[in-house]
Nucleic acid binder design. Structure first.
Lengths: 340, 340
DNA sequence: ACTGAAAAGGACACCGGTGTCAAAAAAAGT
DNA sequence: ACTTTTTTTGACACCGGTGTCCTTTTCAGT
């Protein structure tokens, strides 16, 4: 028994099974050129010895690491974390691990930094979160480097194999439908920042639904924010400052919606009695603010899992879905408009 | 010129510099046995060729990867994300990368899973976030596996080289001092869950400060929560349901404090006029709730950076500090108590 | 039974570094 | 100048896998 306390290597397996290490390698890599009998024999030895291939050695030999990278530029923390958990759902019990890399999309060196990072770490694939997922140069970079990638977005940014998306525009339409159903006519929107695809999608959904209902969207019912709390507060102040103020506001994300709550409160406008507010993202703040906020939630964890599977097991059924439904979460921030 | 478009390897450097690859290796690893002249010569070639050592090859040869692991059990998302950013501050421009691994502390297999993870990935070191940082078996496991580790906590859990801590107890004392200064006498606490060191520290700070001020802490001024929103709501309901209700509540984290806000609101108790509330963590919700909440903030990013440096560069000045100050953030949720 | 083609398995170099230990060079001693 | 010692450097095996290509087996065809 040459077995010590050391972890067994491919050589140990080969010796015990009485085959060459290459054959063991073939078993590990599911090569189809093996006789079933050989495969079974080796598999038994693997089980018996508790052998697990060394990812570092594989990485060196194959020139690519068993690491998935998560590239993001600090959108909301809960989103990023949920995404991480979703990826873990996919890679648990595999040899893959998840490395995270916050980046700064405003830095002129971003692409250079990422290139250098990819060169060094030889990632198996990367997951791109919005807003940087919308950067086509970045996707091109991944292709050039032979690094798999999946973009997460609100629109059809890429081929299905490289994409998980939510149907933001449709879900915003359903928000507006809901508000109209409650009796609202003067509905305002706080848009997200220019250049964000998600902002554009959500805005388009808004416009489409309003026009479908034959409702006007005057200029003073449109404000723009940065997706941050403060900007929502400012934008809402602008919307609420006019003489014919809206009875409902749709904010393109929850943080801005929370800002709108504050703006309303400071003007003695009560939510939802005097003003209905709907956000987007279903982040924790939506549930914890008062009154609890109606918002649109998307299945981040499932999307993350699907994205990871697209990279590590493109054939898996879980890797097929690309479009995921975002759905209205009804809470207490919407009521019928005041009669006046 | 044998240079192609391929990345240069240690062999290229050795050849061009006219030394052996081992000598180049010595330069990379800062070996002190080198003649200055040789070192300089090789360094120049490295620069000239733009050579960067391949982490996978190093990992294989050295038996340990250039990866830092972040093990956490989903405390608050913002904390985890800030921590990640702090770690990135430390490892940017090094060959290190950060891998994250959410774990489940309630699972009986947690230790087994982590062991298997560490065995496979051969991490350079791991960073342990509360509450699992308080698990001594886990720390022991890291030692057994020859894996560096740093625990982040609210108390002196380990030797300084393995620890970054905040002075929770003292900062809670300063919260109570502040409340007393504002005129409060009946101050209640919502404790964190049993078994959490942070909960204990915060509670002890509370008790110490109250006794220092000669104030009573009756049983009905103590409630316990789970650090989650709902539990804070429940706990606050219990505290506010008595006949001599407190004029101020200190909640051991912001989520529970937010729950307390809701409880107050539903009882028509206005914050801060009728009730002052202080939280802990300075999470985004503290700033976004209405009225903005006074809370205790700790410098997570700096702590994370220090923790990472303790692993990858123990000699660095930034790696020396172990205790970081948590500090009161004054916002609008505290006022003088109502006179009655 | 014999031949040839296809299937299965193995030998060996290689990925890009590091560890060991001996050889070469430099410094010190007499 | 010639050892002896100490400091520097290099040759070579090794980490644990995979790729290439060649040999052996297996099996169908005649």
């Amino acid at each position: 028994m040459p077995e010590t306390t050391q972890k067994p290597t491919i050589n140990d397996v080969a010796r015990v099974a009485g085959v060459s290490k290459k054959t063991v390698s073939r078993v590990i890599n599911q090569s189809p050129l093996l006789k079933q009998a050989t495969r079974t024999k080796v598999e038994n030895v693997i089980l018996q010895l508790g052998y697990r291939p060394n990812p570092q050695a594989r990485a060196l030999a194959m020139g690519r690491n068993f690491l998935l990278g998560l590239l993001h530029d600090n959108p909301n923390a809960q989103t990023v974390l949920n995404f991480q958990v979703g990826v873990l759902d996919a890679i648990r019990d595999t040899e893959f691990a998840l490395v995270v890399r916050p980046v700064d999309r405003r830095s002129p060196d971003m692409l250079k930094d990422i290139r250098s990072f990819l060169e060094l770490q030889r990632l198996y694939g990367v997951l791109l979160l919005p807003p940087i997922s919308e950067n086509d140069d970045l996707a091109q970079l991944c292709r050039d480097m032979g690094c798999g990638y999946v973009r997460m977005g609100s629109a059809k940014l890429d081929h299905a194999e490289h994409l998980v998306q939510s149907n933001d525009s449709e879900s915003v339409e359903s928000v507006i439908d809901y508000l109209v159903e409650q009796g609202h006519r003067r509905i305002a929107i706080i848009q997200g920042p220019e250049g964000f695809r998600s902002a554009k999608e959500r805005f388009e959904g808004f416009v489409a639904a309003m026009s479908r209902h034959g409702l006007a969207v005057p200029d003073d019912a449109i404000a723009r924010g940065t997706y941050r709390f403060d900007s929502g507060l400012e934008a809402a102040n602008a919307l609420l400052g006019g003489d014919r103020r809206p009875t409902a506001i749709f904010a393109s994300n929850d943080e801005m919606a929370a800002g709108a709550f504050h703006a309303a409160r400071s003007r003695n406008i009560e939510v939802p009695r005097d003003l209905s507010i709907v956000g987007f993202d279903d982040s924790p703040i939506a549930a914890h603010i008062w009154p609890p906020m109606s918002t649109v939630g998307w299945p981040i964890r499932q999307m993350a899992k699907a994205a990871a599977l697209k990279l590590i097991a493109p054939g898996d059924p879980g890797a097929q879905q690309s479009c995921f439904p975002a759905e209205l979460v009804r809470r207490a921030s919407v009521a019928s408009p005041p009669k006046d």
